[in-house]
Nucleic acid binder design. Sequence first.
DNA 1: CTAAAATCCTGGTGGC
DNA 2: TGCCACCAGGATTTTA
Length: 271
Amino acid sequence: MPELPEVETIVRSLRQPLVGRTFADVEVSWSRTVATPSPAELAARLPGQRVEAIGRRGKYLVFSLSRGRELADTLLIHLKMSGWLRLAPADEPVHKHVRAILSLDDGRQLRFRDMRKFGRLYLVADPDEVVGHLGPEPLAKDFSPAELGRLLQKRSRQIKPLLLDQTFLAGVGNIYADESLFRAGLDPRRRANSLSEPEIERLYHGVCQVLSQAIKHGGTDLGNGVYRRGSHREQLRVYGRTEEPCLVCGTPISRIRLGQRSTHFCPRCQT
DNA sequence: CTAAAATCCTGGTGGC
DNA sequence: TGCCACCAGGATTTTA
């Protein structure tokens, strides 16, 4: 699924066409797509609410809504593994994996398509109900090597599964966890509290650099049809390169399982 | 606390 | 062509 850079790219592409638009109608064809409230209540509450702003928190898209002059609900969308959003004219044929259609006052529709049905929509009065438990935003101005170090110091888990834990750090998924650790020269099995000051510094810059670079490229398109935009795929150094030579030292890239996720790393460069 | 396994889902791929 | 196991960018819940 889209990770932070992919979600950020989608958010940026939706702002221009969506901010200022008012929702008109809701159709849900897979009811569990709507996490909260019930699909019926969503259909009753969303129409008439206008998009004030679109942002991102971790891997969630966050639509701040208003009704008249008053701030109203917040719509949040998590794409999970296979979800994506597209703006389509109302008369365009609906793909069979479309799970929800949010119609707008300009005749267009925001369509949520999701083959694997893991993605979810949330309409809530307070966004913290959904994203309140998330860890810090890695690209926020107030996130620093010192802050990362302070958090790492308290934990003894392996660093890779910890990076994937959204309550520890928001937005990093499997691709960018592997890529960050390669850039930092760290073995993904290292314990969080075993990192030295320079290693923490390298990890901080590895994470921030790979995320910013991926945003600049419009995200990573793996060519499987799930996410089809960005060109960051060409920049990947370990993810999906099992047995291919490390771009730094030539050693074949290893692939292991860590916390149920495939993990790619260079056994020589990452220690 | 950490960690592993099961769960939610569909579809593509490679082996036989 | 069919069948099967396994894989996938996520995350929560259960169990140890």
